[in-house]
Amino acid sequence: MHFHKYEKIWLTFGMASLVLFLSIVGVSAFSQDHTPAGGMTTIDPKKVNETAPFDKPGVTQLDDDTYQVAIVALAFGYTAPELKVPAGKEIIFKLTSTDVVHSFTIDNTKVNMMVVPGRITTKSYTFDKPGKYLILCNEYCGAGHHMMFTEIEVY
């Protein structure tokens, strides 16, 4: 098998670029905690409303700098009383579904979480700017999928 000299140059360059991309995302993810939404906690999808923290959905202050937001997604909306959180504080979003798969996606942020029944998805995010952010479902969930949205106010 023979590689042309230029092909060797190209493949070396290409693979080096790929290693660079992987290093950037890898280091940023694992050393600075910029991992995508996820989590390994399970929940009984039929007992969501009796299971903490979803028995009292909404915003809870955990300590001076941390807030937790627990929300249940269901066709076609989110059970969340008024969502108001402060800017500059860490917000931990916890989501689950009582029916099909949904998403919880806050426009113009890194919060883009799949919500899977039987699982709790977690994502931590700090808002920089106050304002009203659109939240929507971007995973097809049925006839009313495009009507599934809400809002969060950052103060």
Binding site: H2, H4, K5, Y6, W10, F13, G14, S17
Partner: peptide, 18 residues
């Protein structure tokens, strides 16, 4: 064939893709 052949244009083209 492949060591003699002139592939300068190819090299530039793939680097544009890169």
């Amino acid at each position: 064939q492949s060591t003699e052949v002139n592939l300068k244009g190819t090299l530039v083209s793939v680097f544009i893709i890169g």
